[in-house]
């Protein structure tokens, strides 16, 4: 490989990595915001993405609704669905007083139900493709080739993330979420309604998943198993420290870039392995992740 080709690959890898990484960053954000406020790694995140994608597909193709209705409707439905799951199911699981892992198992249960349901409706039987939102045209940035669709994906993801961070930082509800993340009991004492915050957090996470679904669906083949893409969101979250929202974003972009560089420089079938090696490497070298807080000494 000449230096010139390597440089070309590098540019292409970084460009493609940033684009797909922006979707991973969204997914990681959706995972981390739930984990931060309720200590539950949501194993149904992938199926939430998948379900949102199929809702959009159904509305767009089978109901022939225009895109400007489909998008907000999908996001709203995902918000409501996730919030209701938290309120109706997880609240009861938390009250039932078992092991903390029970919440995780319940999210796994949801993932099975959603996948089974999509298969049952018949949509999930054959791979489908989502109609392109805009006609993709190729553009060159430096020497990297990207499409207009790619740029729309990147821009949307960045806007959504910015909106999310703004909300988290400056609104009353965002402050309440941060308080719950730091100390749920204390937050409750100063008048934060935990149940309500948990619902909103789940709803938001669902909405972000729906955005990610809308962005990624035109680029992939849709099946009932497409939720496995969230594995990369998990990888991004871990690399970023799992409790850090900025970490999740940086992790998302990193995983996207690593994946693409490995694909270009090593071998395309090593792509699948790259994120897992990244996870293991990060956890062994810096167990709290790149942005995770310092490990505290337990007071005895």
């Amino acid at each position: 490989m000449t230096l010139e080709v390597a440089f070309l690959f590098l540019q292409q890898g970084v460009a493609s990595g940033l684009i797909i990484g922006s979707v991973y960053a969204l997914l990681a954000l959706a995972i981390v915001v739930i984990f931060k406020t309720s200590e539950v790694p949501n194993f149904s995140q992938g199926e939430m993405v998948m379900a949102a994608a199929y809702i959009a597909l159904y509305l767009l193709v089978f109901r022939s609704l225009p895109l400007w209705i489909v998008m907000p409707a999908t996001i709203l439905l995902a918000f409501a669905g996730a919030a209701l799951f938290r309120r109706l199911i997880l609240n009861q699981v938390a009250r039932a007083n078992g092991s903390p892992v029970n919440l995780v198992i319940a999210t796994l249960g949801l993932s099975y139900v959603l996948r089974g349901f999509v298969r049952q409706t018949g949509f999930g039987d054959t791979p489908r493709s989502f109609p392109p939102v805009i006609e993709p045209e190729s553009i060159l940035i430096g020497q990297a080739s990207v499409t207009t669709l790619d740029l729309v994906i990147l821009a949307t993801a960045i806007i959504v993330m910015a909106a999310f961070f703004w909300m988290f930082k400056y609104t009353k509800i965002g402050r309440a979420m941060r308080a719950v993340g730091m100390n749920p009991k204390a937050a409750q004492l100063v008048g934060v309604d935990l149940t309500r915050i948990h619902m909103i957090v789940w709803g938001l996470s669902g909405a972000i998943s729906a955005v990610a679904a809308l962005l990624i669906s035109p680029k992939v083949l849709m099946t009932a198993d497409m939720g496995s893409i969230v594995t990369l969101g998990f990888a991004a979250a871990i690399v970023g420290g799992f409790t850090s929202l900025p970490g999740a974003v940086v992790g998302g972009f990193l995983i996207g870039i690593i994946e693409n560089l490995v694909g270009l420089f090593v071998a395309s079938r090593a792509i699948v392995l790259a994120p897992f090696l990244a996870i293991m490497l990060v956890l062994v070298i810096r167990p709290q992740g790149l942005f995770g807080g310092r490990v505290e000494i337990k007071k005895v």
């Binding site: 319940a106 796994l108 249960g109 099975y112 139900v113 959603l114 089974g116």
Partner: peptide, 11 residues
């Protein structure tokens, strides 16, 4: 159905 029932049992 297996997936749905399985998931419901877990939940």
């Amino acid at each position: 159905y297996q997936e749905i029932i399985y998931g419901l049992i877990l939940i």
